[in-house]
Design a protein around this nucleic acid. Structure first.
Lengths: 202, 202
DNA sequence: CTTTGCATTAACCAAATGGTTGAACCAGTT
DNA sequence: AACTGGTTCAACCATTTGGTTAATGCAAAG
């Protein structure tokens, strides 16, 4: 469409789209070039190889995901409200990039080593330990029920992310269409937060 | 190792392993042949093409997933105990085949049409509608809180499945090892069930 | 106008990959 | 022993694919 943009960004945008849709192995350099409206050789001119290009896209995607999570977790709110905020903010972020989580999770499983290396070096790496501690403390104080912090955190993430990675399955099983799906997810911000807070109220 | 087995099954087993690990696009026919300890030509002798072989494996995987879900859902128990049973049975099933859900979800997103076709034809297709109705009725009767049945169902599935599709992420973020991860999941059968039942108690 | 240096492309290349084939192998049958 | 049918394999083939290259375009500098 618009070839006005800077070529480098053009490439990244195209690569993001193709890689997200097809995965590393399934994506073709030619497809990315076509999507960006440029010659295939340009891809190698700017980013040495397929792997390098992928790494760039993947890192950015992972970064955004963690960034958003981190922001919500670091909010300076009482735990119950913080949980509400995490759920709201995270689901909203996913609504903007609905295919990112499956993309990330999928490629993550393929090269778990790559993750563990680059993970902690990220400034966007969320301070999980502190959040877990916060849950434990709130439990002690009787603000919430005493629960396993990790399990609770897993539950929160699960309910936010799962609908997006399982979107085709959900649509297939329930028979709802795209519009209804979006409504469902919208509704979810409220529902999940209430669900969690009810489950952990002391 | 053991080439004693029937070649056909040998192939399916190998294909399942390779396809699960690498996905359709990432899997190599040669790898499958090696894994099965046979010549590449045999793959085509028994299953015409890569796609046909994949379809076979994929269908079986999807089938098992739905089968297990279906069984749990059709149990003749009061709703609250049924939920306990669903969670327990589903997580246990996933523990046996931990990479299946990500595999299925991933390939499902790549060809959503394929799904919607073959989906309802399956005898293993779970009777979702009835389960949703059951939740609605229980809500009316005051056995549980009144909630959106679909949202509740989504929550149940989310919390069971997510840890398996996000396993590398969980391990990366929390820093736990394989043994601890298994413990976490084991613990989860209880935790998730309690969590849900607490959240929906009237 | 020429030069210089980056950007861009068409054509090309080598390796990988899904798929095919003709011959060999190996039971069981006659 | 010869035949028959399915099974197995090494070698081969055509296409795809990531990557390279040599030539061209082109704008700013001289």
């Amino acid at each position: 469409m618009s070839q006005e943009r800077n070529t480098e960004e053009q490439i990244i945008a195209a690569a993001k789209k193709i890689f997200s849709a097809k995965g590393l192995a399934g994506a073709r350099m030619q497809d990315i070039a076509d999507e960006a409206g440029i010659n295939k050789a340009m891809l190698h001119y700017y980013y040495r190889s397929k792997e390098k290009l992928f790494e760039m896209v993947f890192n950015e995607a992972l970064d955004r995901l963690l960034q958003r999570l981190s922001n919500a977790i670091n909010t300076n709110l009482p735990l119950t409200e913080k949980i509400r905020e995490i759920v709201r903010s995270y689901i909203e972020g996913l609504m903007e990039n609905p295919h990112v989580p499956l993309f990330v999770l999928n490629e993550l499983q393929q090269q778990p080593e790559l993750l563990i290396k680059q993970f902690r070096s990220k400034p966007s790496f969320p301070n999980i330990q502190q959040f877990l501690m916060e849950i434990a403390v709130a439990g002690e104080k009787g603000l919430i029920k005493k629960v396993s912090p990790i399990q609770l955190m897993l539950n929160i993430l699960s309910m936010c992310v799962f609908p997006f990675v399982a979107k085709p399955l959900v649509k297939g099983v329930t028979g709802i269409d795209e519009v209804q799906f979006k409504l469902l997810v919208e509704e979810r911000k409220q529902f999940v937060a209430d669900f969690i807070l009810t489950a952990i109220q002391p």
